[in-house]
Amino acid sequence: MSEVEDLPAADGPRPLVAVLGGGPFGLALTKAAARTGDVVLVSRRDPGLQLDNVRVTQDLAALTDVELIFMAVPSRYAEAALRDAGRHLDGRHLLVHVSRGLLDDELRTMSHLLRTVTPCRRVGSLAGPISVDVLTNASPGAGVVGSEFPEVVEAVRGALGGPTLRIYDTNDLRGVELAAALTGLLLFTIGFAQRIGFGPATIAAVTTRGVAEVSRIGTALGARSDTFSGLACFGDLLAAVAGSDRPELELGRALAEGATPKAALLRAGGNIEGIEVARRVSTFGTRRKLKTPLADVISKMVGGELSASQAVRSLMGRDVGSE
C-alpha cells in the first residue's frame, strides 16, 4: 500500500466567491469581496451594481462553481433560502453566515441550519463590529470568523481581508454565533439606558453585567467565555457605545421614550433578530436554571408586560452577588 502525501494548496487567483442575499449587508460584502476577485451575488432584486467583476443572478445554480459562499439572508428566511441553495451544493463548498439570530428556544444557532439543510460541513460565522461602512468604503476595521475548519478562515481572509480589514479567527464557532446573537440584547439595553437618562457609569455597569450574563449563557451551551470578550461581543458593544447605528439601540431608545412595543419595532426598522432572542434566552434560562435578568426584563418590556420604570426597579432590586 503506497504512502500518500499532503498536497500543497494550488496558488493562483482566488476562487470565485458568492454572496447569497442582496440586502444592505449582502451588498456590502459583495463590494468588499469584489476588491479581491470575482464575485457572484445571488439576489432576487437587481441592486444595480456597476462592478466589472460582480455578476448578479437569481439562478442558484451559479453557486455550484463557487468555493466560498457568504450567507447574508435574514434568519427568518434562512431556512427556505438554504434549502433552495443546498440543492446546488456539496462537500466542497465553504459556507459562512453573518446572522445575529437564534433558531429556537434551545438557542440553536444558524450553523445548525447550515449543516442540516445543506450538505455543507465546512461552515463558519462572520461577526464583530464589521459594518456596512467598513465593508463598502474600506474603512479600517476588524471582524472575527468562527469556524472549526482552518480552510474556512483562510478563504474568508482571502475574500475580505486586506490592508483595511483584519479578519481574526477562532475555532469557537458556537461562541461567535452566540456572542453575535446575544450582543443584540446588550445593545438594546444600552439604547434604553442612554435615552432614559442614565450616565456613563450606569451604562458601563449594566453593560458589563450584561456581558457576564451572555457569557454565562454561552458557556452553558458549550461556548468559551473568552469569545465573549472578543470582537464578536465586546467589539460590537464598544462600537455601539462609540455611536454605531444598530437598530437594537434605536429599539431600546424608543421603548425608553414610552413607545408601545409595536411602534418601537416599527421605528427601529430593520430585521431586529435580537428581540426574539430576548424571549428565547429568558425561556432557556428558566429551563436551565440560569440567571438571565437582562433577558427576562427585555423580554417582558418588548412583550408589554413591564414599563421602563418597572424594568429599572426590577433590575436594581435584585440581590447583589460576587462578580
Partner: peptide, 9 residues
C-alpha cells in the same frame, strides 16, 4: 477535496 484535489488535513 481542496481546490479540486483530495488532500490530507
Amino acid at each position: 477535496t481542496h481546490r479540486g484535489e483530495p488532500v490530507l488535513d
